[in-house]
């Protein structure tokens, strides 16, 4: 059984059908890059997987947790998949450490000392142990994004969804975040990432999904997708990258 099973998912915003029947299975430990033009539905697909968007039809399942619109199902699902956002979304009134501790204590009812120990461990993992007491506005964009990764990891998810996690960063800060993601991939974390970092996708990912007009247009290992694109749309997309 796959870790993430996406079956014939359709999603419309009003009359505009953004996802036109998506099928995708993700095995444990896979690192998948979702590429495509803006408006092709890649972010929407990611947001459907943890229920930030409701789907019109089809089904999504993560490690046995079924996507359903009620809070109980959503919570069960979201405990299995973490999400990292383009704009970090750290809680501005809490320190880095408190950001990582909060959901453990609120959602999992973890006692404070254990939540704090976990927070220190996760911040260390992203190289920010020394920023435990810093507030988000005292951190660079790259550091904020790494705290956001630590915050998601502290919930011990089985997979991480990364929605253009480096797009809001200055060029010199992109690498420090990608390095952390790369390390997670090497440790066997299942990753689904919408990204514009083609070289990263080529180097790190096990499969690349090219989305076009709300469909999975091409899918395969990076060598195939980047080296021998089958469709003119993908060739055009890759050509426009340089």
């Amino acid at each position: 059984m796959s870790l993430i099973e996406i079956t014939d998912v359709r999603k419309s915003f009003g009359a505009n059908e953004v996802l036109k029947g998506i099928d995708l299975n993700v095995e444990p430990g896979e690192v998948i890059a979702i590429i495509g033009k803006s408006g092709s539905g890649k972010s929407t697909l990611l947001r459907c997987i943890n229920g930030l968007e409701t789907i019109n039809s089809g089904s999504i399942q993560v490690a046995g947790a079924q996507l359903a619109p009620d809070e109980l199902h959503l919570k069960a699902l979201r405990l299995k998949v973490g999400m990292i956002f383009q704009s970090f979304n750290l809680f501005p009134h809490k320190t880095a450490g408190q950001n990582v501790m909060l959901s453990q204590m609120v959602v999992k009812k973890t006692p404070k000392p254990e939540a704090e120990a976990m927070a220190r461990k996760m911040l260390e993992r992203v190289g920010l142990a020394h920023k435990f007491d810093a507030y988000p506005d005292e951190l660079s964009g790259g550091q904020q994004q790494r705290v956001a990764i630590a915050r998601a990891l502290a919930m011990q998810p089985m997979a991480l969804l990364c929605d253009e996690v480096t797009s809001a960063l200055d060029p010199e800060l992109v690498q420090e975040v990608l390095a952390v993601v790369k390390e997670l991939a090497a440790e066997g974390m299942t990753l689904l990432m919408v990204t514009h970092e083609m070289r990263f996708a080529r180097d790190v990912c096990s499969r690349v999904v090219f989305m076009h007009m709300g469909r999975v247009h091409e899918i395969g290992p990076p060598a195939e997708v980047f080296g021998a694109p089958k469709t003119p749309e993908l060739r055009q997309f890759l050509g426009a990258q340089h």
Partner: peptide
């Protein structure tokens, strides 16, 4: 408050009320 703050809370497994209360 930006929608991103709500979504960050929800995606960490907090209920709508918990997200309001703590985030």
């Amino acid at each position: 408050t930006g929608q991103g703050q709500f979504e960050a809370g929800w995606s960490l497994g907090m209920t709508r009320f918990e997200t309001f209360r703590y985030v």
